[in-house]
Design a protein around this nucleic acid. Sequence first.
DNA 1: CTGTGACCGATTTTT
DNA 2: TCGGTCACAG
Length: 858
Amino acid sequence: MIRMTEPSKITSVPDHQPAAGGIAARARASVGPKYLSGLNPEQREAVETLDGPVLVLAGAGTGKTRVLTTRIAHILSQGRARPAEILSVTFTNKAAREMKHRLGQMLGHAVEGMPWLGTFHSIGGRILRFHAELAQLKSNFTVLDVDDQVRLLKQLLQAENIDDKRWPARMLAGLIDGWKNRGLMPSQVPSGEAAVFANGKGGKLYASYQERLKILNAADFGDLLLENIRIFREHPDILRQYQQRFKYILVDEYQDTNVAQYLWLRLLSQAPAKPAPTVIPGRLEEPNPESGNESSARDSGSAPAAHPGMTASAAGATKNICCVGDDDQSIYGWRGAEVDNILRFDHDFPGAKIIRLERNYRSTGHILAAASHLIAHNEGRLGKTLRTEDQDGEKVTVTGSWDSEEEARGIGEEIEQLQRRGEKLNEIAILVRASYQMREFEDRFVTLGLPYRVIGGPRFYERAEIRDALAYLRVINSPADDLAFERIVNVPKRGLGDATVQMLHDHARKRRIPLFEAARAVVETDELKPKARGSLRDVVAQFDRWRAQREVTAHTDLAQIVLDESGYTEMWQKDRSADAAGRLENLKELVRSMEEFENLQGFLEHISLVMDREGGAEEDAVSLMTLHSAKGLEFDNVFLPGWEEGLFPSQRTLDEQGRAGLEEERRLGHVGLTRARRRAMIYFATNRRIHGTWSTTIPSRFLDELPAANVEITESKGGSAWGGTGGYGASRFDDMEAFGSSYTTPGWQRAQANRNRGGARSGGGYGGFEDETATFSSSSSAGPDFGSFSSRRRGPLTIEGELVAKSTGTTSEFSLSDRVFHQKFGYGRVTKIDGNKLTIAFDKAGEKKVVDSFVQRA
DNA sequence: CTGTGACCGATTTTT
DNA sequence: TCGGTCACAG
């Protein structure tokens, strides 16, 4: 492995000063090394606490990445480990790149020597390639994308004679993904859960899917970790090898880890077992969520002894693992992230040191106060109190408008106003809950001629043209890649439709050969009509030729040749649709990006893990994105439209996840607010068109949860706020008392009423928060005031019932055909049970899916 | 095998 | 309302 250049290269600035005494010398001085200066005491503690497990609770804008990178620099400069002995994982390629970049600035070019800095999946994939044969794979296995997965599952469904209308392949893909996220191999899936798909065939399908993957020499994303876990468990010697290698482990965004990632980390973070491998205790043995008692044990109080075996053998046996995260920013529960992981850290890693980073360097006082007060309504949290030494700044504004169109118009005007005041468009973002909200803004911006860019959306490697191109290359690289072959055999159109593919399948299965070889054989027979036979023969011949050329042509050139000769480029050139040009551009970009890799093989191995959305983003433009994709970003000015019940918090989340869902939505609100440096502007509309039909909405309950002292209710656009640009008649609002200076909208009133009812927890998902009216004096006193508020909230770290129930998949306490009552839908009868989700036939409201905590026995 | 109309169903997204 | 998927006709 590449050695770090020299310790003395470490500086806190990118320049290369000779640094006579070197870092080590300075480290011994009381001041400490230079890179530590400029850290606040908590940050510094997080960097310097090198031994044992550490959890850094890093609130929004508190310098989390800085801590992570400085910690690595510190480990290296102290000579604690060499670069190749540090495992550092992130979730996204973007985060990994950012860390590499920052490290590069601190260390010079030593980053080259950090081979284990990457995403969970890329590192898992890397490890899996080393031991592929232990997973019945070859080291050049393919990583499947979602399309491939679905296509494969469709075939399995057909083979099993299952109606893929009633039981869509996508749904099965989702289930399998969920199981893999939870670390479950086919045999470990709780039978109840395996049965929910296709009348009990779910588990069997999962098993045969895995078998097919091995035959295809392929792995899906979930396998990259799951197969690691399996290998580590079955081969303690291999595990030990990695445990010995990784002296330090760092994890970014720990609140987003799922069970599989947690298990993976747990395995790697145990100190290497010396004698016979001891069984690693606690959750490791039973990722099986059916043992739902675990949670209550965990919950029932102060007993770290809930993991008896672990405390015994793990005390002092856990290595140096440092997880950084923020429970208040956990917004990916719906895709398998376990807030539990972070909430339970000190149980899982006994003796863990917990460090809170609470000084925020991003937002002004009012914004921070609003965000803190909002999130304080959550119960399942570890509790942090963000503070700033910045000025109060402007209050968070809340603006109501008549409908979503009005809302878009108002925001458009406000943006123009900001622009006139000299704000950069790059410093303005609109964060929506759901992507369908974006359309209205796009329309408006197009009319205004306001440059904007949508962030998120389909990623580069998810685009059809990229996948097609990759499929061509995959078939060249591995002729047995049936999924890739199937994808492009008729792209561009060659008259080789379903019928032909079906017969190739039959052939291939009978002779146990890949589709490509089947095609070669079939061409020699007269089973196909002359036309199809001719095109198929051409295809086979073309691939043979490309494979031969591979030996003598650079891989980038080969790619270009393939795209041209296959007619793929031409297909898009002929295409008259608006995005055809962009697709051709993407193809060029793909070919260009291949240069970074040595050969086709290397390119294909990494591409599915590393490809990212395009960079671009040079010109000045407003950013439009979902709240989810805004995590990790910051802007001077942030617009938060659509704060209405049903949309935000999303009704669906509430229905499906109950209270845990509400808390996750609230965290989303917290994430949104904390994106803003100087101005946060919230909007709600009274009427919104959802799926085509207009409906009247009420303001989000989250508005009620904002502290009055830091919020200003403004009139909708064009009005007094900045002197009135006239233009549109603001008059419609003049009559509405709603937009005066106090909380008097119907929603507010309803909310007040509900709140006063108090206690009725299980009713509508509304908790009763007695201290609603707690006023936050503005933020000069923010520190102490927050402190007292939060410390009142920071009770025992128990997790609210549903949260646990949801994350551990316990089964419902209800049984089929129970008679139940629901606050909103009235009486009904349970017709289906899926974990804690019930399907209930209501007497009046019809059949609905609800979370069990929302109903009571009637 | 391909192009056209009916129909269903609608969050959030990374790897 | 809109867009994707599916059955059917050519």
